[in-house]
Write a protein that binds this DNA or RNA. Structure first.
Lengths: 341, 341
DNA sequence: TTGTAAGCGTTATCAC
DNA sequence: GTGATAACGCTTACAA
């Protein structure tokens, strides 16, 4: 068995409580005893048992991360790797520890979350998606457990600290860019309409069209749950329309890659035959052929801010609810071109 | 404060130990008491405190995952997302929990690992890389702490349970495929030579050439640490050689994407002007333009097997050391073509 | 079949 | 300044 605080105490001829105080660097302990105890800790190779500490402190100094159903798409999408990088960065600085849900269905994830919350395994959670009627968020709210949402809540947004982009503007700007290039027939390829991000971006798209006096053609609207294969059929249908779009707003770089592929199979050239704007600006946007014009949403920062405000909330329960909006920026590359008349 | 085992005991008129036994579904408790206690647990909304349980059991039922310096490349590469999916799957089944290192330098990571090990935060670890002189693995070995390595150890491989691909054969086969297409001038673009995977694949490449009687041209060998940008200059130099290669073996799909991009900037067409074979077969290999011929190494399975054997080792310390080799398979797509004479 | 009590390794509240 | 001692919530001999 490993060396405990008691072993140190014995060897240093002090009480366990003294050792504990030395560890906490309590000002009420003399420098001399501190030195002595530290020396013994060193010699014996003492390391604190975090589990015992958690139990005594009623705090685990750990944060739980909730992914959308990891089985399918989630881990595939670099968005999550990138928020994770941000989160990791923040967490590391604050000396917290990271814990993950591993469930694949919403039900399994809920079980994971309950285990973490009730099991006192984490002090707070970061929810990486906002989905209509999500039972996980409902649970967190009911329990009044500290959490921050990455995304925009469907309701109670005055009560839920969240960090998000202004996705409506982001999509509006992307669409406006296309309109400025002379496009009037613009398709929208979105994901599951159950996710807030899909809705917001769709809304931005609609507003841009409205302001430009372009009626929305419902045939131009596609919602696919699956990142890649799924979009295929839909895109084909879209392009087979009598009056196919000359530009596409695609909700996500990865989906855009799928679209690019389908387009190339159909013999359509980007940007010559059709322009594409997507979102997120993950690494692969730049690597695509052609490089994608994409709205950068600062994913890394999303992660950093999420932990920052979560930790504030954990350490001060009276912390007011906050809404953090991370700026976005259209990165123009080579996937768009002015419409030829 | 939440409801504890004692509250349940009191409400059910039994001893705390009885409640504990009911939770563990001990056969020594009568069905009747079990029913009664369970009912009370339900009513009171009892949930076990995992921290307390860990302390009493001296086991956290948690597994730690060690990433290579996450700051840079690691999270960017879908390899890690994909192993994680596998690990996640395995872990979820066994009702273990996942914990992460968040450090960015080897030193920070080592600190994270020490905290997990000494702090009793995890029962075992999965090391996701094999690097020459790595202090993290050294530590794990010294402590005789249960871990499994994803990759091939540099030394002591009889002592370290590891799950790996036969990367030498994988690379040999990839190279042979190119040779069969008539290529004799084949470049090798690898990553950090400090990683075992780089060395093994280079070795496979060398063997294939040797068997085909093709001398190795050292000018054709490139080692770049950075996934994307890094390769750029090197690839340019390579292609500017008097006698440039007609085919490239690239260590990783993501790096291959960078290579594809650079090639296209140089006006070189793939596969017409130059053939490319890469490794890992992540999602993006298929999505690339042209779709990449890549050696599938079953990343997901790598993850699944890693947790499986780790858990065996955790639950039975006498479990023998194992070496698990996951099969690979060349997936032919459109990035290669026979050499024109 | 169930209860009692000690113990897991800390921290925190009192005393002195 | 430092030392006893009681938590924290659970498991597990050992008794009964």
């Amino acid at each position: 068995m490993a060396v405990t605080i008691k072993d140190v105490a014995k060897a240093a001829n002090v009480a366990p409580s003294t050792v504990s105080r030395v560890i906490a660097d309590s000002p009420r302990i003399s420098e001399e005893t501190k030195r002595k105890v530290r020396k013994v800790m060193e010699e014996l190779g003492y390391h604190p048992n975090m589990i015992a500490r958690s139990l005594a402190n009623q705090s685990s100094k750990a944060i739980g991360i909730i992914f959308p159903n990891s089985g399918n798409t989630a881990f595939q999408n670099p968005f999550f790797s990138e928020v994770l990088r941000g989160i990791s960065e923040g967490v590391s600085e604050k000396h917290y520890i990271l814990q993950f849900t591993t469930g694949r269905t919403e039900e399994e994830i809920l079980q994971d979350v309950k285990k973490m919350v009730f099991g006192r395994l984490v002090d707070g959670m970061i929810l990486l998606y906002s989905k209509l009627g999500d039972s996980v968020m409902k649970f967190l709210k009911e329990q009044n457990f500290p959490f921050v949402l990455v995304g925009k809540p469907f309701e109670d947004s005055e009560v839920i600290t969240h960090v998000d982009n202004d996705n409506i503007s982001a999509a509006k700007e992307g669409t406006e860019y296309l309109i400025r290039l002379g496009h009037r027939k613009i398709g929208f390829i979105g994901g599951d309409i159950g996710f807030m991000v899909t809705r917001n971006r769709l809304e931005g798209y609609r507003r841009a069209l409205a302001e430009a006096g372009i009626p929305v053609n419902e045939k131009y609207l596609i919602h696919e749950e699956f990142l890649l294969e799924g979009g295929k059929e839909a895109v084909k249908e879209l392009m087979l329309l009598d009056d196919p779009p000359t530009a596409l707003l695609v909700i996500d770089d990865i989906m855009a890659l799928g679209v690019l592929k389908t387009l190339s199979e159909l013999g359509k050239k980007v940007p010559e035959d059709i322009s594409v704007v997507s979102f997120n600006n993950v690494l692969f946007a730049e690597l695509a052929q052609p490089p994608l014009t994409s709205v950068d949403i600062n994913i890394f920062t999303l992660g950093i801010e999420a932990v920052k405000h979560l930790i504030q909330k954990i350490e001060n329960p009276k912390e007011p609810v906050k809404r953090i909006i991370i700026p976005h920026r259209l990165i123009v590359r080579k996937s768009c071109q002015a419409v030829v008349r």
